[in-house]
Design a protein around this nucleic acid. Structure first.
Length: 121
DNA sequence: ACGCTGACTATTA
DNA sequence: CTAATAGCCAGCG
C-alpha cells in the first residue's frame, strides 16, 4: 500500500480540478452512468482519465455527496466499486436506479451512457 | 524541487 | 481473442 492519504482536505479549499469533477458527476441524472474518459474530456484532461478517478477518491468526503457510483470505466465495469463503503453498495445503488449490473459490469452501458458534454457547455 | 502513485484509456505483442 | 505496456495530469512527501 503506497500512500493511504493521497488526498487530504486540510482545511484548505481544494479548488481546482477536483471540484470540477464533482460538479460534472453531480450532473449525472438518475438511471444514467458516465465514464471517466467522458468527464475527463469535459475537463480537458481526456488524455488522462486517471485524474478523474483520483478526484473521485475525495468525492467520498466531499459535500454534497457525489454519485461516484454512476461513474464507471470505459468498459462499463465498476472498477471503483472497491473504493465504496461497502463496495457492494455501488452496484446496489445502480440497480435501484434501474441499471442492470451483472458481474460488476453495467448492462446496456452504451445505452445508459450519459455524455457530460451534452449538458456541459 | 523531484519522484511516486493512481477508481483510466488506447495501442502493441 | 487476451495480456502487457506506455502515456497522461495533478497532488503529496
Amino acid at each position: 500500500m503506497a500512500k493511504l492519504n493521497s488526498i487530504k482536505p486540510s482545511g484548505k479549499k481544494e479548488e481546482g480540478f477536483f471540484e470540477q469533477v464533482y460538479e460534472v458527476v453531480r450532473q449525472i441524472p438518475r438511471g444514467r452512468v458516465s465514464s471517466y474518459g467522458a468527464i475527463a474530456a469535459v475537463l480537458g484532461t481526456k488524455l488522462s482519465a486517471r485524474m478523474v478517478g483520483w478526484a473521485m477518491n475525495g468525492s467520498h468526503m466531499v459535500r454534497p455527496k457525489v454519485p461516484a457510483h454512476r461513474v464507471v470505466n470505459r468498459n462499463g465495469m465498476l472498477t471503483g466499486k472497491h473504493h465504496f463503503s461497502p463496495p457492494e453498495k455501488m452496484e446496489e445503488l445502480l440497480k435501484k436506479e434501474g441499471i442492470r449490473v451483472i458481474d460488476d459490469q453495467v448492462q446496456d452501458f452504451k445505452k445508459k451512457f450519459w455524455n457530460p458534454q451534452e449538458e456541459w457547455s
